[in-house]
Amino acid sequence: MLQPELAEKIVREVQRLISEEIIVVNIDGMIMASTNRERIGAFHEGALLTSQQKKKLIITEKETPRLQGVKAGINLPIFFQHDVIGVIGITGDPQSVTPFGEIIRKMTELLISENYYGEQFDYHSRAMETFVLEWLQAHVQSPDLLERARALTINMDLNRIALIIEFEQREFPLSRDVWSSILNSFSQNKNDVLTRSGNERIIILIDCSASFQPAAVKNRLEQYLQFIKNSFGIAAYAGVGQCAPPTNLHQSYAQAERALKMAKRTRKIIFDEELTLEMITGELASEVKTEYIQRTIAPLLGERDLLDTLVELFKQNHSLKNTAQALHIHINTLHYRLKKIEEVTHLNPNQIHDLFCLYLAVLFLDEYPKIE
């Protein structure tokens, strides 16, 4: 329970309050951490007595010769769930340091409690993440998987929708406290399953067995993503699969992955059932998409202005007026660029077949190696 790393943390935190020498001792009387590094590993008889008697022990200068390894000061038992798990000692004049005693003990017990529940959160998060990922890959519910589901109080007999939330890339990973707040803030029903997946994703398996309403799910998601944005400054988007029976949950997850690719591009919440063209393009191998780009718009990859013009053209639904305004260029300049695109790609943006070929190539750019 009281490990050396935690003991060191306690010493550092308590040292902020008082300048006296601090020790943290285990229930066997061995000093685990101290502001005086030379005392670490030494036996402290006063702390042992404190641990055994479960009460504060004051040691005066006169009493130090009769107790092994002690200095004048105060020793306080550290309690966790009504049991003594260690002792914290403060060296100095007992009259001077005793007033700090209860404050320091409460602070120490709070640190231990936070550490314990943090470890419990980490353990449960890892167990849930591992279980859910195995569940999503399983086509058959094995006895081991069912047993772990019971331990996690998960009902595996329900129809569910798989939902993936992905955060935009950040420089640093989220802290435990942030993850805890995010995971505990989703407005979920009792049968919903929610877990983190790595440092960038949340997987939610929503019960859709009865009275399921996609609009209600979208509303919950919008509120949740807005909460994450407002509370932590993290932008996120989501892909949602379709309702699937227990044996086909992996299919709903695959649909959510497919929808997420579009959500990543639009920074929105996308339901798989809304996809049309993306159903096909999402199934193509990345190698095929790369080769397709090479056969179509590869000559534009080194022509930033032309490529940006083509991308904006599709954003503006092929409106030349809106495209020119968005790019802050004259309409004649836009016509010149479109003519140049046709010359280098041999695809005419004014012909439906060629326009569609160009559009597909632009769609595939997200998976193409970044252009410097």
Rank of each mutant, 00 (worst) to 15 (best):
L163F: 11
R337K: 11
N189G: 15
N115K: 11
I280E: 05
N248P: 04
S231N: 10
T345S: 02
L6W: 05
I204Q: 02
S181V: 08
H139S: 13
D366H: 08
E287P: 05
D93Q: 07
A254Q: 14
I182P: 00
F232S: 02
P349H: 05
E102I: 11
L158S: 01
L110F: 09
E5P: 01
P214W: 07
L205S: 10
T35I: 01
T153E: 14
H330N: 15
K321Q: 13
E367G: 10
N230D: 15
E63I: 00
F271I: 05
L347K: 05
L334P: 01
G41R: 11
H82D: 15
L334F: 06
E200A: 14
F271A: 08
Q141A: 15
G239S: 06
F172K: 15
N191E: 13
S286R: 12
V25I: 15
H82V: 00
A42V: 07
N36C: 09
F232G: 05
K106Y: 08
M107K: 11
P77Y: 06
H328P: 02
K321S: 14
L6F: 04
R148I: 07
L174T: 01
S209N: 09
S252N: 09
L365Q: 00
L225F: 07
A210F: 14
R16Q: 12
I85W: 01
Q242F: 11
I31A: 01
G29E: 01
C243E: 06
I269A: 04
D83G: 02
K261G: 11
I18M: 08
E343A: 15
P246W: 03
E343W: 03
M128E: 06
S209E: 12
T108M: 03
I331T: 10
K321Y: 15
Q213T: 08
F100R: 00
E257N: 11
V25S: 03
Y123N: 13
L6C: 04
L249E: 07
F121Q: 05
Q242L: 15
I22E: 02
V132W: 02
E342T: 12
I154P: 03
D93E: 08
T108C: 06
G282H: 08
Y292P: 01
N322M: 07
E63N: 02
V11C: 07
Q81S: 12
L363P: 00
T153Q: 14
M128V: 05
T195P: 10
N36S: 14
I22A: 01
Q137M: 12
C243L: 06
R160Q: 07
I103K: 06
G241T: 06
